[in-house]
């Protein structure tokens, strides 16, 4: 499974777990408009750390992704 597919799959899982209604996902969609709140995004990051073995936020460079596309790219780069 590609990193992109994994990230999108886990976004769906988190939304379902937290009873959130997901907007149709696209790369240009702002992450905070996706239907996930910040707690969901925190859970998402923790779950992706466990699934992919990477945490692109761990080096604390402060850059937070704005869009879904940015978010996926961060993981693709970190996993590469």
């Amino acid at each position: 499974m590609t990193v992109r597919a994994t990230v999108l799959g886990v976004i769906g899982e988190v939304a379902e777990q937290h009873d959130k209604h997901l907007a149709p996902l696209s790369d240009n969609l702002a992450l905070l408009d996706s239907g996930l709140d910040s707690l969901c995004i925190a859970v998402l990051v923790a779950m992706l750390d466990d699934r992919l073995g990477v945490d692109p936020f761990a080096n604390d460079n402060g850059a937070l992704p704005v869009t879904v596309g940015d978010f996926i790219t961060l993981y693709e780069n970190a996993a590469a």
């Binding site: 910040s38 925190a42 990051v45 937070l64």
Partner: peptide, 12 residues
């Protein structure tokens, strides 16, 4: 707690 870049900590 587990450190989280988004919320400071998460519950594990």
């Amino acid at each position: 707690g587990r450190p989280s870049p988004i919320t400071g900590s998460l519950v594990v």
